[in-house]
Design a protein around this nucleic acid. Structure first.
Lengths: 208, 208
DNA sequence: AATTCCAGAGAACAGTTGTTAACTGATGAC
DNA sequence: GTCATCAGTTAACAACTGTTCTCTGGAATT
């Protein structure tokens, strides 16, 4: 089924990935709106003009980064809000999953948190669209739970957005605590756990 | 009590304010990390070197903007979570207050949302410090409520941070809906109201 | 084997950037 | 009234930016 790419296309994708990686590294200490095209090509080790073979602009590269950073996250979302286990167990599992994701892809998390409200409109729009998709997936997952009986579609989506935003806040907190001592990371875990617990309690009494 | 500033100091403060205003306007469509010193002086109508009479760098200017944008917000916070009225009324009042603030100071709100996770470390740090102060104020305000009886200090602070983050999320949503039809703004109001209501419910059953 | 394609290189462009130094002239202190 | 202060100016600097056009050499197609 899968067609082996020609040498040419393979090399091109390799260079493209090098652009994405270099950009992500450079964005650790600046925003996308100040990322220069020459800066990226210099980091990759190619001529400035090579950039145009892959992207129209740095904004275009940013949109590609959004896909890389969030596209692979969709499968994980289903696991995060899966319905197995009691609520306390589910909360702990969700937080743990977030913490591990931040450990594994800190640059991705930083990029999304930074550019969600950043200075480049197309990138903001791309992130927004993906987060809306996330919320919709969370919503359908929530709907499967017996606890969701009697909930309106609007209320389910409202709760889903609350979960997604809370997920991002928590991820950002873990990111800030990345190089901090384990004690600080534990503090974040405790905070996030209790916030999620409070939301879960509110969810349980929503229909009262 | 107040000393009338000399002509010199008055003029200097006037120019300084012009810098802040011009920067805030320029930051509507870019991030601070890409804001150039010359760009700002050009907008103000002054020589590039005049910049150094007021700020060491654009990062320094950013920190000043944080103070302007968040410093004046502290009195408002107390009103937002004040204990008068029933909970439904308090929720409505808080959302209304946020909506009005976004209408009055959209550029300030945009700046804070953008630079909270932005590419300039000192500015991020300044915002973080102010938000921690906010959370502490909210916490002492929450502690006054009879509903807070039996709550630990940690739990109160946890809830306070939840409120502060939720406040920022809501403000950001109103900002995106600024130029949208009234229908969209109403949708945001409904969403924010119900999210805050769910948190309030969770708060009410926290000690169960 | 001959030909087309195309990722990347090279050079040059006008325009921008932050920062330095030495200046001007009104204001403030005495 | 004299002199020091200091907000803002002017000129110049090397370094950098995005974008254009032309070229090259190996892969793909025929």
């Amino acid at each position: 089924m899968s067609h082996t790419l020609g040498i040419r296309q393979a090399q091109k994708q390799k260079t493209r990935q090098a652009f994405l990686d270099a950009a992500l590294a450079l964005l650790e200490e600046q925003s996308l709106s100040s990322l220069g095209l020459r800066e990226v090509t210099r980091a990759v080790g190619v001529a400035p003009t090579a950039f145009y073979r892959h992207f129209r602009s740095t904004a275009d590269l940013g949109v590609a980064l959004v896909d890389e950073a969030l596209g692979s996250l969709h499968p994980m979302v289903r696991t995060t809000v899966s319905t197995t286990g009691d609520s306390e167990e589910r909360i702990w599992r969700a937080i743990e999953l977030i913490a591990r994701h931040v450990d594994a892809y800190p640059a991705h998390v930083r990029f999304i948190a930074r550019e969600r409200h950043g200075g480049v409109q197309p990138v903001r729009e791309a992130i927004r669209a993906q987060l809306v998709r996330f919320a919709e997936e969370v919503k359908t997952e929530l709907a499967k739970d017996p606890e969701a009986a009697g909930w309106s579609d609007d209320d389910l989506l409202m709760l889903a957005h609350l979960y997604v935003d809370q997920m991002l806040i928590t991820a950002s907190l873990f990111l800030e605590a990345l190089e901090a001592p384990a004690e600080e990371r534990e503090r974040v875990t405790q905070l996030a756990t209790r916030q999620l617990r409070l939301i879960t309690i509110g969810r349980g009494h929503w229909l009262d």
